[in-house]
Design a protein around this nucleic acid. Structure first.
Lengths: 332, 332
DNA sequence: CTGAAAGCGCTAACAA
DNA sequence: TTGTTAGCGCTTTCAG
């Protein structure tokens, strides 16, 4: 079949142990021997079998990444950050989509463990008790990326979503708005319920503005749903004059609805949102937004995971990345 | 350490072969024995080691996916199609980004082979001789997804880009346009150079319209570049009245440039493009476009790969998926 | 600096 | 229906 370490050993007149040493860069090999072995490797086209290596060494240099849906640019961007750092540390990635279904998440997690991954990066809206238990009993490190750990004390990389939301809404308040709506993603996502919404409310309270139920709109995070939900706002007796949107796809849905009703941004209504995609910059008017460093979220998660996998001491397993607000055309 | 097939065998008072049989659903096991074994597996929390299994069986139920950049929604969507079918057939995916760099592509390909993947799905702009050679000598099947195989005869899944471009341009011609520009992605991408451009030219020729050099604009596929390149069109003595764009991101760049110069779509200029993302539907005016079935491209590629991996007879290894044009607001 | 040998956890003949 | 026994290709002591 294909050439093994044994073939190389025979060809080079050394033991397989020696071949193994040169392949693994072990220094205890006489240069002349090394060269001879290297030549044979080249000549025979030997390529180490990572599966055999994994079995013998109990390390696969592969990590698992469990993501809700890679086709969403939010996760795609984050995954790219993970992948680049993984490459840097010579890890491969097994990538699986969970669609946020708890049973599927558990299945995938166990599946990845079965494949003997050296670590896992996990993303989801919310952690079920089952997946928590899995993670707690797993024999490899797990890092949550852009995923709230409301409960246990798992390694996590995130931004301060509450503060970001607070700052965004505050911006609207500073611009003189008294009636500010929040068009949110699903509250089933911990970050929406426990962070962004709280930040929104905090900003209003601080400015002595009332919390109005009708000004809180939940969407399923899609453009189409947001476009429809705009009508709820439009039909209000006292329409808000500022809108804070959970992300840019929602914001564009709202903005298009609004425009199709003859209103304009920012003249009639000012908007600000979280930026997850290119959309914010590409639509007109361009959206003022909290820029979420998705790539970095992924990259830092992976970096953290490498430390954990190496058994390095990590001072703080919960890292918060900075965010910033970029003002564009949807606010004045 | 963790529990092995051997522990289960001992606990259940059977041989490891029997445990292996029940784990693998082999029917040659007495129901009573099966139950006993299953109980022990449950009780001990046994989880088969896929690495050991892979070494023994020479199958890893893992495939490699090499993609230029997963953060691009084009590839993310395609990958999701691959992933869903992979899940259906119980394969895992090792996903790597090549950034289209030929040396990197070769490295990744070899790396994946080293990990003993059972097959590879490959995406790129163009196939270098080196990667062709790798693929030809690989001992596992390879499928090209959305990637032109200009040369060899590798299994491929694609749409007919030439026809799609032809139809799109024809639409513009039918709407009465005589001066039609094509804003393309990089010509280093085979599909752009060998298919779309050819389709564009064919439509013009057929209508006896001249091929004008200035009406062909190459971009690097980004919004920003397209936005800049608009100026080239704007400054033409005889400005085109119809624009065919290589994808929606390019189209939006052009359209924003155009609008910032006080022109309007479709009144001053009609546009049509290839749709790769949500963008086409979300911008105003919505873009008329060739809808590219990215998800299906991925799904069908994976399905084809499963057949190849199973050694099934495949009548045609080059499959062409249908496309359709969706007319929206950027054409009349 | 090099080699021999014992696994890693499982599959797959082959026997029984 | 079940058990025995070779490996799969490599890493890793342990000797020398």
């Amino acid at each position: 079949m294909s050439v093994t370490i044994y073939d190389v050993a025979r060809e080079a007149n050394v033991s397989m142990a020696t071949v193994s040493r040169v392949v693994n860069g072990n220094q205890n090999v006489k240069p002349a021997t090394r060269k001879k072995v290297l030549d044979c490797i080249e000549r025979l086209g030997y390529r180490p079998n990572a599966v055999a290596r994994g079995l013998a060494s109990k390390k696969t240099t592969t990590i698992g990444v469990i993501v809700p849906d890679i086709s969403k640019s939010y996760y795609a961007e984050l995954s790219r950050g993970i992948a680049d750092i993984a490459t840097m540390y010579e890890y491969n990635i097994i990538l699986s989509n969970s669609d946020k279904r708890p049973t599927r998440e558990v299945e995938l997690f166990e599946d990845h463990l079965g494949k003997q991954v050296d670590g896992v990066i996990f993303m989801s809206d919310s952690l079920s008790d089952e997946i928590r238990k899995e993670m707690a009993t797993a024999n490899v490190p797990v890092v949550l990326a852009g995923t709230l750990d409301a409960g246990t004390n798992l390694p996590t990389v995130n931004i301060d979503h509450e503060d970001a939301a607070y700052q965004a809404v505050k911006k609207l308040i500073e611009n003189g708005h008294k009636r500010i709506a929040y068009v949110s993603g699903p509250l089933s996502r911990d970050i929406n319920r426990l962070c962004k919404k709280v930040g929104y409310e905090k900003a209003l309270k601080e400015a002595n503005l009332p919390l109005i139920d009708e000004y809180f709109i939940e969407t399923n995070n899609t453009y189409d749903d947001a476009y429809e939900k705009w009508k709820l706002i439009r039909d209000l007796d006292e329409r808000p004059t500022g809108i804070f949107a959970g992300n840019d796809e929602i914001a564009v849905g709202i903005m298009n609805g609004l425009r199709d009703d003859g209103l304009s941004v920012p003249d009639d209504i000012e908007m600000i949102c979280f930026q997850h995609t290119l959309l914010s910059r590409v639509v007109r008017p361009q959206l003022s937004a909290v820029v979420v460093p998705l790539y970095d979220l992924g990259a830092v998660s992976m970096r953290l995971l490498t430390k954990l996998m190496n058994g390095e001491e990590v001072d703080d397993v919960s890292v918060i990345l900075p965010h910033r607000i970029e003002e564009r055309q949807s606010t004045k």
